[in-house]
Write a protein that binds this DNA or RNA. Sequence first.
DNA 1: ATTTAAAATGAATGATTGTTCATTTAGTTT
DNA 2: AAACTAAATGAACAATCATTCATTTTAAAT
Lengths: 225, 225
Amino acid sequence: MSNLSSVNRRTLKAGNDMLSDRRQKFVAAATELFSNNGFHETTVKQIAEKAGASPGLVYNYVRDKEVLLLLAITGVLESYKKEVPKAVRRHDDPILRFSAALSAYVRVVADKPKATLLAYRYTAILPQPMREQIKELEIETNQIISDCITACISASYFKDTNVEVLSYRAVLLAHGWALKSWRLSRLHGVEEYMNGTLDLFLAGLLTAKGQRHYKDLCEEGAVLR
Amino acid sequence: MSNLSSVNRRTLKAGNDMLSDRRQKFVAAATELFSNNGFHETTVKQIAEKAGASPGLVYNYVRDKEVLLLLAITGVLESYKKEVPKAVRRHDDPILRFSAALSAYVRVVADKPKATLLAYRYTAILPQPMREQIKELEIETNQIISDCITACISASYFKDTNVEVLSYRAVLLAHGWALKSWRLSRLHGVEEYMNGTLDLFLAGLLTAKGQRHYKDLCEEGAVLR
DNA sequence: ATTTAAAATGAATGATTGTTCATTTAGTTT
DNA sequence: AAACTAAATGAACAATCATTCATTTTAAAT
């Protein structure tokens, strides 16, 4: 509860980067409980129980309950950082790469909607250094999308706009599926939501050249989503 | 902390709908503290202090700390519900009404960004009946925007799309200014953000007829925003 | 087997804080 | 000014939990 250097000696032994099985189990349990019941409403005892261990043991693998929160949040962000580039790599065409990025992003959101919200709900309660770490990760994933957009602009497929702001708009709408799922999921399936979002972006962004190119892609059947 | 009927007798006296000055002060203090420091991190003592009263008095005006949270959240939602129609009423043209709605929405968000986030952060911890109340309010404001969109479609200015989902997209991007202000405000002013968002929507939605009409409006100088 | 070290336990601690209520203060009526 | 009511106080209560640590269990090494 005080300075960072006073980490329980045992904590360090457990390895701070190559996460042991145990540690992972604690993080997984915490992620689920925080997602479903909230951070403050979850007790360390519950986390330990769900991970099949005793409350005291948690502190051999993690300094704080807060650290579990950080790891829960970064865990989700890391899966964006992994899945989005993977999807982008499958394509060469700029428009297809952009579509794939957004589509992959929404897929991850839809896969763990509640965990996606952890960042929105709880980033604010973490100490600044941790917040920085989260922001950094968020910016990194955003950069991937920005790069896709830039490529589309360079190819004269997209109108010239503020790339970074646009990437935030895209990410926001992707997160929207989780943020407003209570309503949206009654109106739509994820697929439809995603396609609709993509259509809105493309209709708003494509140049005349881009439109022609996009139509070609559709006719080739390249746009499967 | 138990059943709802066990409200402190004194609470009822204070009047549950015509909010006394005191009550309002407590709500205002709570809103500010919850917004800045978080719900769980704020003590009733702090709220009382900020409102110039003692902790015990809070319970003469409010059943719970939770009720203060509900009132803080609904307070923001009510101001959407008030400001957005007010802005819409100023115009007759469908496109201008839509623009005005979105623009007003963003203005409210920008005016109290942190309070806007309360709903996102804390709706989940409230008991279901309160959550329902919040959802209801959100849907009502959304309906106003939906109506604007429907009017645009009826006039053949907008392409035909799923109206309600589109209204959620609009609202999400409006909230986006608060959700991502830490980054967006470095890239943009609110005005620019708003205009950019509106441009994206219009570019994506306008029909040929709509485009012509919109151009006319611009030339008349009707689109001031 | 014996020693040493690591992993794990879970009862006890200490601090926090929402809420209550006996009591005081201020205001109004008669 | 006495009696009565409402408003307000703030110390005390009760419950909750994150965290610690003396102790036990398990595993490895000699």
